[in-house]
Every structure is written in C-alpha cells, then in structure tokens.
C-alpha cells in the first residue's frame, strides 16, 4: 500500500528541474567553466553573503554546514565553523537559510556541504527530506566515502537529491569506478592532497587528473582546493567544467564580518570575468 501511494505521489509531482545540470549546461553553452562558490552558514550575514555570491556571478552555491570537528578543513574554514557554532547556529537555522535562498533565487543550484555527524544525527531520511524541502539540490558529505554510502546515499537518492562525490589525487584508476558509482550532479576534484585553503596544485597535475576523470564519468568535473586568484581560476577553467572557490571567500567574511557582501560581490565578479575570458 505504502509503495503504491508513494508511487502515485511521485507521478503527480512535477519533477524538480535539475538546476545543477542546467547550470553546467548553461556555462558550457557560453563556452566557460561554471563558478562554484562556498560560504559557511552562520558565519557573518549568511543571507547577504549568499546574495553577494549570486550577484557577483556564481553559478552554483555551496552552503557549508558548521561542525565542531572539521578535520578536512584548513584554518579559514575551521575558524568560520567555530565562530558560527559559537553564535549558536543550529541545523534548523541552516535549513532556514537554504529555504530563504531558494525563495530569492529559484534557479540557482544550492548544495549543502559538511560532515557526516550533523547530517545523520536525526537519521539520514530526516536530513534528506529536510534538505529537499529547504530547496537544496544536492549534498556533499566530506567523511562518507563510497564504502559507507548506505549511511546517507540511499536517503538522498530517494529524496531526489544529488550526492556529489569527491575525487582526490590519491584516488587511483583502480578506485575511481567505485567513487563514480552512485555519484551525481558533478564530480568534485580535490586538486591537492591536503586540507582546504592552503596549497595550490600544479596546473599540469590538474590537467592530467581531469583527463583521467573524464575517462571514468560523464558527470561534469569541478576542481577545487586552494583556488584563489582569477588567473588560477582561468587556468583551471580552461580544462574543467567547474571551478570551486571556498576559503578565499570565507576569509573575506572573516575580514569584513557582517558587512562582507560588497567585497564578496567584487571578488566573485573578478573570478566570473576571468572564467568568461579563459577559453
């Protein structure tokens, strides 16, 4: 009975337009890489910061869910996480930010990015449904590799959300099919073995990695970790489908506090311009 009823629900629902696929297709049609940008929820004026990303020309927005123990992050995002939690940011607050963003920006893809424990605390189904209802398009969970997919993946897929997987310099050819299997939306290439925001990868290593990834998946490839300058973004954008910038934006929020939106828009527009002129 239950499955029949849910099948009916699904049939009568208008399928949500795949905003992620549309964003990558739009960028591709314009002959450029998509600009993927990250801010931490609850760090500074998050609503204004998100609007500033879009105003500057971001194609896809990642909203970081703060966690007490962000073990894959460098100093900038660590500090943003702890500052957000010190200001008592809750999961409900983050979902409210997402909901507000979806109302203001109906077409811009929104990804929730964070760590497993806050996502799993009330159960994976709860989180997947809450994320979908808040208007998110997908989720990146740093510490759930394909080997533990059952902890979150099935719930996201049932809710119609993309599960964006990460590939890294240590993801060898033998392992790549495992990573790609069950991934959707795009593949996030972490271009350096390290934490966020510190080193930058050599351009030739990025190019050979993208060639390797393209051989294993038809998903768009977005490259991140250590990308800061318009020049770097342009160089990567010549060969990738997307460029991800995070720590540099979070540092602007740290510097300008609750009044960072002007600086963010200005910075993002330099990246967007660089990507438009890259190819």
């Amino acid at each position: 009975m239950k499955s029949a009823a849910s099948a009916t629900d699904r049939d009568t629902q208008v399928p949500p337009r795949d905003r992620l696929a549309a964003a990558f297709a739009c960028a591709r049609d314009e002959g450029r890489a998509a600009l993927v940008t990250f801010v931490t929820a609850g760090h500074g004026d998050t609503d204004a910061n998100l609007d500033a990303l879009v105003a500057g020309g971001a194609d896809i927005v990642e909203l970081g869910m703060p966690f007490t123990d962000p073990m894959a992050d460098g100093p900038a995002i660590q500090a943003a996480n702890l500052r957000s939690l010190a200001a008592h940011t809750t999961t409900a607050d983050i979902l409210a930010v997402a909901r507000g963003f979806r109302m203001r920006h109906p077409a811009v893809p929104l990804i929730l990015m964070g760590y497993a424990n806050p996502m799993l605390r009330r159960g994976s189904d709860w989180f997947a449904n809450a994320a979908r209802e808040a208007g998110a398009d997908g989720v990146i969970c740093v510490d759930i590799p394909p080997e533990e997919d059952s902890a979150l993946g099935p719930a996201l897929r049932d809710a119609g959300l993309h599960l964006v997987r990460l590939a890294t310099p240590t993801t060898d050819a033998r392992r790549l099919p495992t990573v790609v299997d069950g991934a959707s939306g795009f593949l996030y290439y972490v271009s350096v073995a390290g934490i966020t925001g510190l080193q930058q990868a050599a351009q030739d290593s990025i190019e050979s990695a993208i060639a390797r990834l393209k051989g294993a998946t038809d998903l768009p490839i977005a490259v991140g970790f250590g990308v800061r300058t318009p020049e770097q973004a342009a160089a990567i954008g010549r060969v990738s489908d997307g460029v991800v910038v995070g720590s540099a934006i979070v540092e602007l929020v740290a510097k300008h506090g609750g009044d960072a939106s002007g600086a963010i828009t200005e910075y993002i527009s330099t990246l967007a311009t660089a990507l438009r002129g890259a190819r």
Binding site: A72, V142, P145, L166, T168, T170, T171, V190, A193, G194
Partner: peptide, 22 residues
Amino acid sequence: ERGHFGDYGGRYVAETLMPLIL
C-alpha cells in the same frame, strides 16, 4: 570485511585518506 562491528566502526574518512587505509 567492511570493518563494521555490527552497526558501528566502518571507514568514515575523506576520500584522500580512503586509499591509504585500504
């Protein structure tokens, strides 16, 4: 074989570390 003690344990690490622990 997946490192699970019943429902516990497992390999909840970032992808960069996954090949190392394998």
